[in-house]
């Protein structure tokens, strides 16, 4: 759903007036707009560019330069995988792979039902708990593939293989 019409941009107007259309405040303006709308719709960027009197492509240049900015609506649950050194050494990539496998999306993507989005983030500074993922602002440490399933189950992802530990007596089938 694209936020388009003038109504959807009301928060943008409010933020712009708070910063008095100050060109220097472009980054705080974009941050606040994203906080309000969840992402930066093209219409909002155009409006901001007009207000601070720069070519729209310049605002687009900013929005695509910085990791923080999102051009598409995020999922209801934002999953961020820390890719700091300590996390990488002990399985950050494995955690990312596990989420990708379960959600069937790649990094920087959102599931078609918009419930989950996945991204990698630079070090969140919780290296002593590596590997770390951030689920909707909450930091979760020592994440293994089993824990990934647990996290997704808590978030209500359906279609996960049932918790197999209890049913493990059966074992897998011979291929």
């Amino acid at each position: 759903m694209e936020i388009g019409g003038s109504e959807g941009l009301l928060p943008v107007e409010e933020i712009l007036s708070r910063y008095r259309n100050d060109r220097e405040k472009l980054i705080p303006i974009l941050q606040q707009v994203q906080e309000k709308l969840g992402y930066l719709p093209l219409a909002a960027m155009e409006r901001i560019a007009r207000a601070v009197r720069v070519p729209a492509v310049e605002v687009y240049g900013l929005a695509t330069f910085y990791n923080q900015f999102r051009l598409n609506p995020p999922g209801d649950h934002q999953i961020k995988i820390c890719m700091g050194t300590a996390c990488y050494m002990v399985g950050g990539q494995i955690a990312l792979d596990s989420f990708e496998r379960r959600l069937q999306i790649g990094e920087d993507e959102t599931t078609p039902d918009r419930r989950f989005s996945l991204e990698r983030v630079a070090c969140v500074g919780c290296c002593t708990l590596a590997p770390v993922v951030v689920i909707n602002e909450r930091v979760e440490g020592k994440v293994t593939p089993t824990r990934v399933d647990g996290i997704l189950l808590e978030l209500g992802l359906e279609g996960l293989p049932e918790q197999k530990n209890s049913a493990s007596e059966e074992g897998g089938k011979t291929p």
């Binding site: 293994t144 293989p161 197999k164 493990s168 074992g171």
Partner: peptide, 29 residues
């Protein structure tokens, strides 16, 4: 067997476990 996220581990006829390399995603679990 329970820990494998992709069902790559199976029980052999002798009851021991083995890994189906085609399925294994090397997750270390």
């Amino acid at each position: 067997v329970g820990s494998c996220p992709v069902d790559a581990i199976y029980t052999r006829e002798d009851g021991l476990k083995a890994i189906d390399q085609k399925k294994c995603v090397k997750c270390d679990n």
